[in-house]
Computed example of a mutant assay.
Amino acid sequence: MPRGRPGEFATAPHLALRPASGEYRPFNAGHPPPAHHRREDGGSRRPGEDGGPPLGLLPGSPYPAAHGRPALGDSLLLCSDGLVEVPGQDIEAGIGRLPAAAEPVLRVPHASGGAAGHPAGRVLRAVARDVADDRTLVMVRRLGPPFTT
């Protein structure tokens, strides 16, 4: 829990991930829900719960988690609200822009190429080029054969 004066709060996404199985559980405190991009059909979905309020806003609030297991080649997208929120527009429109902007990048089996060509950087520029707010994007892709333990 954040410490500070009454009325202070913080937002945070959290992803619990088991690399060996690919299983994940996202927790959200005031951020948009993650998107699960399916490489097989190019579609995206938002798994399960939307999460809870910002930390410190409503003490004792539950933070339900969705769960899932991406197939090989699938990706998870977690972002801050600053990436998808545009003043005067419904945040759902911004949340919908993220998977659409990410799809061309995620369709490629594996991409890199320095900071300017980094896949997350290309998505950030496509979704929120002129945004003055925080713009955070975490892209997690499940690659290769499962690990053995």
Rank of each mutant, 00 (worst) to 15 (best):
R5W: 12
G121Q: 10
G88D: 13
R122S: 08
Y63T: 11
R135N: 03
G22Q: 09
L83Q: 01
L77G: 06
P119V: 02
M1Y: 11
G4V: 00
D74H: 04
I95Q: 12
R142K: 14
L83W: 01
G7E: 10
P109W: 01
V84F: 01
G4M: 05
R135P: 02
P104Q: 06
R125H: 07
I95P: 02
D81S: 11
P70S: 02
L137E: 14
G42N: 08
S112K: 05
H14V: 15
A100L: 14
T136I: 04
E23D: 10
R45L: 14
L58G: 07
Y24V: 14
D130K: 00
L17N: 01
G48Y: 05
L137D: 13
L72Q: 14
E103M: 00
A115C: 03
S75E: 06
L57V: 11
P59H: 09
A111V: 09
G73Y: 01
N28I: 03
H36T: 07
L78N: 11
R18C: 15
V84T: 03
V84P: 01
H67R: 13
H118I: 08
P62C: 05
P99I: 01
V86S: 01
F27E: 10
D130A: 06
S61K: 02
A101F: 00
C79A: 15
G96K: 04
G48A: 13
R97P: 06
V105R: 05
P99C: 02
P109V: 05
A126Y: 07
D74R: 09
D74N: 12
L58M: 11
G22F: 04
R39G: 09
G22R: 01
V138K: 04
P2Q: 03
R142Y: 07
E40Y: 00
L77K: 06
R141H: 10
A71G: 11
Y24Q: 00
A102V: 06
G22K: 02
P99L: 00
T149G: 15
S21N: 02
R46W: 10
S75N: 02
S80K: 01
P33L: 09
P119L: 02
T11Q: 10
R122H: 05
A132V: 00
P146V: 00
G113E: 07
F27L: 13
D130S: 04
R5H: 12
L76H: 11
D74G: 14
P146E: 10
V84Q: 06
E49K: 02
H67C: 12
L143P: 08
P53Y: 08
I91H: 01
V131C: 14
G96D: 15
E23F: 06
L143F: 06
R5P: 03
V138A: 13
T136M: 14
T149Y: 05
H67Y: 04
